[in-house]
Amino acid sequence: MEARNRTEVSEFLLLGLSDGPGLQLLLCGVFLSMYLVTILGNLLIILAISSDSHLHTPMYFFLSNLSFVDICFISTTIPKMLVNIQAESKNISYIGCLVQACFFTIFLGMDDFLLTVMAYDRYVAICQPLHYAFIMNPRFCGFLVLMSWFIILWVALLHILLIMRLTFCMGTEIPHFFCELAQIIKVACSDTLANKIFLYVATVLLGVFPLTGILFSYYRIISSLVRMASAKGKYKAFSTCGSHLTVVSLFYGTGLGVYLSSALTHSSQRSLIASVIMYTMVTPMLNPFIYSLRNKDVKGALRGLFGRAASCP
């Protein structure tokens, strides 16, 4: 097929998950339900934290930011997929594809950064409790979040600028249900060496380094707990980390498994299904449940929120 200049390519084709109309309808219903549950769950977490002054602490400040990012993360991909299923269309415009890839990268990176910052917050709370209020002051917490946004915005922008230099063939098909950077690079008709190098470097800087920081934080936390004499104190201290550890395991277990394997092999239907179910939908949906079911403070704030809502005329 003859390569054409990118300015002549007005749209791409997203192959999606299945061509069967019956299965498409089932997927639409399931994913719409999961999307609504995700939006509602994370909105409740944000409202509960903002309405309860007892939760105006660094840990819950970061949690509310994580819930906001999860809402944006899932909203970047799922609505377009649902629209395509209903319209029986696989098209996405060239600009729309770049915008989707940009926002997906931003919110994915912010999830990563926020989980790292939350691990550092737990490290300071457990290992340096006397200095916690001084170190994790509101200004420093805001600085950490703003710096995370600043870094990931520049990384995403550089990715998109590099992609805009590529050329694509007319009728290019993306073997995915959304525009993801690695998949766009694979289907380009021009040299992608610079894109691949930057993608690998960004993956190491924004994936491996934050994960290393999380593991180091928990290494210090566990070392501190081992030296703690009180068994009750150990349990209380570590219980504050249980939810975060569960979310970290879910995030990296699904994300790195799917995307590192797809980088080495050609995408298959199985990897696409694993991506949408476990990575882009299940993880954001489960986060509010993980943080609320085992957290007395959040459950109390939710009860208060529902109580105030029920008492309103």
Rank of each mutant, 00 (worst) to 15 (best):
S249K: 04
C241Q: 03
S239E: 12
I273F: 11
V247C: 10
F251A: 04
T254V: 09
L260K: 07
L245R: 02
G257K: 06
S271L: 10
S268Q: 12
S267Y: 07
T240M: 09
L250I: 04
T240Q: 14
H266I: 12
G242Y: 12
R270I: 11
V247G: 06
H266F: 14
H266N: 13
S261N: 10
I273V: 15
G253M: 05
Y252P: 01
L272Y: 15
Q269D: 15
H266E: 14
Y235P: 00
T265D: 02
S271C: 10
S239T: 06
F238S: 09
K236V: 10
T265R: 05
G257R: 06
C241F: 00
S243M: 07
Y259D: 07
K232E: 13
Y235M: 09
L272W: 13
A263C: 07
C241W: 02
T265I: 11
F251E: 01
K232G: 12
S243W: 05
R270D: 11
V258S: 01
A237I: 09
A237W: 03
G253P: 05
Y259T: 12
G233M: 00
L256K: 00
G233T: 03
T265M: 12
C241K: 02
L250V: 03
S239F: 12
A263L: 12
Y235E: 11
V247E: 03
S239G: 08
T246K: 12
K232N: 09
A263Y: 05
Y252T: 10
T246D: 01
T246R: 13
G253D: 01
L264Y: 01
S271A: 10
Y259V: 13
T246S: 09
V248F: 04
G253W: 02
G257T: 15
G257E: 05
K234E: 02
T254K: 10
L256T: 05
S271V: 09
Y252Q: 06
C241T: 12
S262V: 08
V258K: 05
H244C: 08
G255I: 02
V247D: 03
Y252L: 08
S262G: 06
A237V: 01
S239Q: 10
Y235K: 07
Y252R: 11
V258G: 04
Q269H: 13
K234M: 09
V247T: 10
T265G: 02
K234I: 04
A237F: 02
S262M: 08
T246A: 11
S271N: 12
C241I: 08
G242D: 08
V248I: 07
V247A: 08
V247L: 05
T254H: 07
S262Q: 06
C241A: 08
Y235F: 13
Y252F: 13
S249V: 07
Y259R: 01
S249T: 14
S262H: 00
T246L: 15
S267L: 14
V258F: 00
G253K: 06
S261V: 15
H266R: 08
G242E: 08
Y235H: 08
A263P: 01
G242H: 10
G253C: 00
Y252G: 00
F238K: 07
T254W: 03
S261T: 15
Y252V: 15
L250P: 04
G255V: 06
G255R: 00
L256D: 02
S249Y: 11
